[in-house]
Design a protein around this nucleic acid. Structure first.
Lengths: 186, 186
DNA sequence: CAGCTAACGCAAAAGAATAGCTTTTGCCCT
DNA sequence: AGGGCAAAAGCTATTCTTTTGCGTTAGCTG
């Protein structure tokens, strides 16, 4: 955006707020650009020009919803920190609204910038957990890439491609397997 | 569908064929229901009634594209079989058209049936590879779930959420790590 | 072969998206 | 401060998509 301040900023905020309100009032399926624009006190053409289409707008909004609200909990031990974080992550992402936001974020975003942001959020939180562990002097702290591959990716894959059968125990198993590489599998 | 044979089947095939043709001719972005319907020799309302909207239709077509065309190669050894398969899988899925099909399949499919089908295709191919290995009497053959979690899921996650930086070497590493669980990580 | 009904065609109407042009409003420069 | 430039929003007409109601066709069943 060439003009971050003033009217542009107000319009962006009004439109995002309108999406939030209308999502709650009429449901995601019933959202349309004219409806959102009218609620935001803006003309539809403004929305089309700024966002291109409804999908891209919803993609933007979805990324906001997916931003973590707090720092990961600090229990004093890596395994517990990661487990708690993974359980909560899975819980949020696998819920109906979480799945809807993920899909929206992926969808209206051919370049992958919004999707990349989602991954960056997770990477950031994991980085925090791992850094704490390293600062405490814990041994065998994996790197963030490994945790993304071994914990986050399987959860996301199942959320997107294999609906059903996801629970906190699965998250715990992934974390445990990730932290104990010598464990034998059949 | 209550009437699998006759006209219904012909319409379905004509519409799918029209999508294929037009994808090649005008590009995915330019596809519209009226355009597809006219090419298929059908009225738009028929398409809307059968598929609901464009996204669901494209989701159906995408799943067809994602169906594997051949059995996995048989090299006589599990590690090589899996490596070859993963390399090819990543290559196809990470390509621009592969990514587009994945997104389409996920998108127009609130129930997740089409997405589940994609995962089932991969599981089937992996199952074939693992079964061969077991029949040969190889030791330490993982189960299909493990391969999905450790090989397929990370590739898919990166394709969807972290564009860029994907190559055959990554696929090889995932397979190797999956087959040698005692390997130490930092 | 006769009846039933799902599925399609047709056409009208509602709604959404686009494009051209005008107006407003930040922002920068003197 | 004031003036000029250009980005962004408003307005409106037009096009295209989507929905809907009703009549027709054509598989399926007895």
């Amino acid at each position: 955006m060439a003009r971050p301040g003033g009217r542009s900023a107000r319009v962006q905020q009004a439109v995002h707020a309108a999406v939030h309100e209308l999502e709650a009032e009429v449901g995601r399926e019933a959202l349309t650009v004219p409806l959102i624009a009218s609620r935001a006190g803006v003309t539809p053409s403004t929305v089309y020009r700024r966002w291109g289409d409804l999908r891209e707008l919803l993609s933007d909004v979805a990324v906001e919803h997916l931003r973590p609200e707090a720092e990961p909990e600090d229990t004093g031990e890596l395994a517990a920190d990661l487990t708690v974080w993974a359980e909560q992550f899975l819980d949020e992402m696998a819920s109906p609204s979480g799945r809807a936001y993920i899909r929206d974020a992926l969808l209206g975003d051919p370049e992958g910038a919004n999707a990349g942001q989602c991954s960056a959020y997770a990477a950031e939180q994991i980085g925090t957990v791992l850094r704490r562990a390293a600062d405490r002097g814990e041994q065998r702290v994996p790197d963030a890439e490994t945790v993304l591959d071994r914990v986050v990716a399987p959860m996301m894959y199942r959320i997107l491609f294999r609906p059903g059968g996801l629970d906190a125990d699965y998250a715990r198993r992934l974390v445990a397997d990730c932290l104990t590489p010598e464990r034998d599998r059949r």
